[in-house]
Design a protein around this nucleic acid. Structure first.
Lengths: 207, 207
DNA sequence: ATAAGAAACGGACCATGGTCCGTTTAGTCC
DNA sequence: GGACTAAACGGACCATGGTCCGTTTCTTAT
């Protein structure tokens, strides 16, 4: 939303130029509370783990009413998804502009391998949060669309042809929390999962 | 567990030969209640959908206390997983001994394609239940191990070499509910998902 | 048949996610 | 600055999953 300070002279026409269908902008108190809640939640996670992040607890820790938590984040899953997005921002930055081979500058194939490895590790690292975010993590979860998009980009760079969206999903799936769940139950070590994934990538890309 | 009827003559020795660490066998009332609960739950699903399957509702419908429901199935997810297993039994039978190409008798490649298609449809059909079963659906969910095992078998038949377990997971992943969730959000039609999966299979199998 | 022990039962009770609505507060317009 | 409106607030309230423990029922041994 673009705010134009009132033109002092005559013709004191419109002052707000809402871009397309931009949401009406957040009220100050609302914004303040969002931040307070996010920080409170982070504090709770750090101190007592994801399980301790109760809606009541967060509300209390942030010094607001419970209703406020729900108005801001819709549900517990929504709150978790918000935490997740925050956590993954740094990772995204390193993909977009960090050092190679994860960041730009390396050969596509090497970037792909680095991407897979890094994604696998990040998923494991955030596993608790991802599970707690449930479906919200794939929905509003900005992180996911980024991941899928980048994968499509890498596949295109590698000259892969076909339904890139579907191929990207297929290549990403074995690195996602729900699938990893299945794997870890059998006690397979991470390195083997990665090795299997590389083999898969080779077959898909055609190397 | 093997039960040997008492030998009428002398030497009236042991009567129960528990195999290895077989659980102590279910008491009559327990067994009766398990069935009553399962049927009650099925009735509720049929009548009002998965969402209406409340633990209280099931208990009431089965004419049993709530505690009993939990003792039998551990949790709501556990109950859902049980329902799921029941639903999938028929499908499993058609894979094991039904008509080709899903059942035995067809070429491995054709069986693989039929398997993928059928699995995709079944997942969509049971989507609600699968979601409601959550993690229990991959854990105790007997159905899943069957699926994975059959996929490994087909890959082996096709002469695929490598980490078959991992490849099976990768090939199955795009047909699973959580991944399908992502796809359906973008409104991709089922046929396209299937086509994408076939392409994936081709690349993995090497055709 | 009876007694003893183990296992199952049932429903009150607790914790937590989610809703509702009367009250308060940030913006806006004069 | 004061009035007005829409949005945000807060916490009582509800629904539902899950636990607990005193009571009842099955099973086995005598």
């Amino acid at each position: 939303m673009v705010v134009v300070t009132r033109v002092s002279g005559e013709m004191s026409e419109p002052v707000l130029l809402p871009l397309a269908d931009t949401p009406p902008a957040e009220r100050r108190d609302a914004a303040r509370n969002r931040i307070a809640l996010l920080e409170a939640a982070e504090r709770l996670v750090a101190a007592h783990g994801v399980a301790a992040v109760t809606m009541d607890a967060v509300a209390h820790e942030a010094g607001v009413g419970k209703g406020t938590v729900f108005r801001r984040f819709d549900s517990r899953e929504g709150l978790m998804a918000a935490l997740l997005n925050h956590s993954e921002t740094e990772w995204q930055a390193s993909v977009i502009s960090g050092p190679p081979p994860l960041g730009p500058g390396a050969e596509p194939w090497d970037r792909l391998l680095a991407f897979g490895r890094s994604r696998l590790e990040t998923t494991i690292l955030h596993a608790e949060l991802i599970r707690a975010a449930g479906r919200a993590s794939t929905r509003s979860y900005a992180a996911y669309s980024f991941i899928a998009m980048h994968m499509r980009y890498l596949l295109a760079e590698l000259g892969v042809t076909g339904d890139l969206q579907l191929l990207a999903i297929a290549l990403l799936a074995p690195l996602e929390a729900p699938i990893l769940d299945q794997v870890e139950l059998d006690g397979i070590p991470v390195d083997r999962v990665y090795a299997g994934w590389v083999d898969l990538a080779r077959r898909i890309v055609g190397r």
